[in-house]
């Protein structure tokens, strides 16, 4: 039977290294199947996060040959088998063990975002053309691959001042909800650091749900901030009302 060799990162917060495992191949096999084979037959304490194994929950993110992927959707027959396939944990978050990283920071960021707030007296009627845009953002399965490849987090470690593409997508979904009544522009500018994003589109490239993160979420949000804070007309109006009030 044909075999593949996987070089899987084994280790914890302190130290670790790739360890090679030989895995028999089967038709249609995905990388997560190979990891399960290792758990079931070779190393029962290999730590891997996964849930649905159907590309719907976003748990099994890892870097396969250096590329951020959902391991449940990465076919073994799409990878070159001449050399070992490297499987490493996401790089933007601290390792807990093996392929499992500490993603709790994302849940902290999420708490900063004001929830959907319907406009007062709103009619609960919406048309498909009005929900098409926010529905795209609500496809997000929170795999955090976009967070993992964003330079601001991955290379510059600005976790404290920045929200990352996942949360720009979430905010876009709320801001573009046809019945929502609050503005999150201040939050985007001051707490989620949208200005750090220099639209390199790395996030869009890795999104397993094919959400147009940069074009449809980030750029329109950047425009909203410009309108609110940097539009000269608005600036004068703000200045006047502020003066008038003091």
């Amino acid at each position: 039977m044909a075999e593949a060799v996987l070089a899987v990162y084994r280790g914890d917060r302190e130290s670790g290294k790739p360890v090679e495992y030989k895995v028999p191949l089967a038709p249609g096999m995905v990388v997560l199947d190979a990891l399960h084979y290792i758990q079931g037959h070779l190393s029962p304490d290999l730590a891997v996060r996964w849930n649905c194994k159907a590309g719907r929950c976003g748990s099994c993110s890892a870097e396969v040959n250096g590329r951020p992927r959902l391991t449940c959707k990465t076919r073994m027959d799409s990878l070159p088998l001449e050399s070992p396939i490297t499987i490493s944990p996401l790089r933007a978050f601290p390792v807990i063990k093996d392929l499992v990283t500490d993603v709790s920071w994302n849940y902290q960021v999420n708490k900063k975002i004001p929830a959907f707030t319907p406009r007062p007296g709103v009619q609960w009627k919406m048309f498909q053309k009005d929900v098409d845009r926010p529905q795209e953002f609500r496809k997000c399965i929170e795999c955090f691959l976009c967070q993992n490849v964003c330079h601001v987090l991955r290379d510059h470690g600005k976790h404290a001042q920045y929200g990352g593409p996942r949360f720009f997508v979430r905010v876009a979904g709320l801001e573009m909800h046809p019945l929502d009544g609050v503005s999150r522009a201040k939050l985007l500018k001051e707490q989620l650091g949208l200005g750090f994003c220099n639209i390199t589109k790395c996030c869009t490239e890795v999104c397993p749900e094919s959400i147009h993160i940069t074009d449809n979420a980030i750029i329109p949000l950047k425009e909203r901030i410009v309108d609110k804070y940097y539009d000269p007309l608005f600036w004068i109006v703000r200045k006047i009302t502020k003066t008038g009030g003091s």
């Binding site: 029962p44 304490d45 730590a47 807990i96 093996d98």
Partner: peptide
């Protein structure tokens, strides 16, 4: 019986 430590150990969990 399980191998390894108590740290995120799927075999122990199973």
């Amino acid at each position: 019986s399980v191998e390894g430590s108590r740290l995120f150990n799927p075999g122990w969990h199973l």
